[in-house]
Simulated scan of single mutants.
Amino acid sequence: MGPLGQPKRPPLYTPAERARRDASPWTLVQGILAPLQFLVFLVSLALVLRTLSTGEGEAAANLSVVAKTLVLYAIMVTGSIWEKAVFGRYLFAPAFFWEDVVSMLVLALHTAYLAALGLGLLPLQGLMWLALAAYAAYAVNAAQFVLKLRAARLQSAPRLRLATGAAR
């Protein structure tokens, strides 16, 4: 049992998975793409909100959502390769199951935006609202990953203190 009588969660990574994670070049790729995607998201969000509020900047807003979607595709493909290298499956490894489920929603919404843009299925305002829906799902997914990685760091912290003799 953990603090306050809560059941202890299993560690995010087994020792073998941690070793594979640390040895994989895809870990670095994910470490670069994740903050890049967040930066593109912030810029695009500002452009989409500007277009929604003023009606101006349609081309820049659309281009930014396309750029965000391309970065999303890159992180999804390389993330699947990373997941295979670490956990032995491309998607839905138990450690990241719910993050992958929400990632599929994020991917579907971004792809729907591209389809609507390319096929002219929605007016400008509809496109911008679809982009915001995709971005809301992305924000939830990003929070999931940040919380998961923080939990993993906290789980490994006691072992680090013991290994370095810092435990009291």
Rank of each mutant, 00 (worst) to 15 (best):
E56Q: 15
P15C: 10
R89K: 08
P3I: 09
L42A: 15
I75D: 02
M76Y: 07
R50N: 11
Y138C: 11
T69L: 04
W26M: 05
E83M: 07
Q155N: 12
E99N: 09
L114A: 05
L52M: 15
S156I: 12
G88I: 03
A157V: 13
T69D: 00
L63C: 04
A108W: 03
A166M: 15
F97E: 07
A46Y: 07
A131S: 03
A23F: 00
L109P: 06
V146Q: 06
V102Q: 12
L132G: 09
Q6H: 03
F97K: 11
L119I: 10
T69K: 10
F92M: 01
L105Y: 01
Y13W: 03
T164R: 15
A112G: 10
L4E: 00
G118I: 13
G5S: 08
A166N: 12
L121N: 00
Q30E: 06
A166Y: 02
L45P: 05
L105G: 11
S53R: 14
S103Q: 02
A115R: 12
P94M: 03
W129K: 11
P10F: 00
Q125C: 11
E56W: 15
L149E: 07
G55S: 14
A136Q: 11
N62M: 15
K8N: 01
E56D: 15
T78F: 01
A93E: 03
R159D: 13
A23S: 01
S80Y: 04
I32R: 09
I32Y: 08
E99G: 06
A157E: 04
A108N: 01
I75R: 05
G57V: 05
R161W: 04
P158L: 04
P3C: 12
A137Y: 06
P123T: 08
V140D: 09
A136W: 02
Y135V: 03
A131G: 02
R50T: 15
G55P: 12
Q37F: 10
A60D: 12
V71Q: 09
W26R: 01
E17M: 03
K68C: 13
A115H: 08
G118S: 14
G55E: 05
A133E: 01
K8T: 04
A46T: 14
A85H: 11
V101N: 10
V102F: 04
L52F: 06
G79M: 00
R18F: 02
N62S: 13
V43P: 04
L162D: 03
I81P: 06
P7H: 00
L72C: 05
F145I: 11
A152W: 01
G31R: 09
V66S: 14
A167E: 10
K84Q: 04
L12S: 04
P25T: 08
A143E: 12
L105K: 11
W26A: 00
T69M: 03
V66R: 15
K148T: 11
V43G: 07
L114R: 06
L127W: 00
L121P: 05
E56F: 14
S64N: 13
A74D: 02
Q155W: 01
A139I: 10
S64K: 06
Q6D: 04
M76V: 14
L160D: 13
F41G: 15
A157W: 08
A112D: 09
V140H: 09
A34V: 13
S156N: 11
V29E: 07
T164M: 09
A74C: 02
R161L: 07
R18D: 03
A167L: 05
A134S: 12
P10H: 03
A131D: 07
F145E: 07
V77R: 07
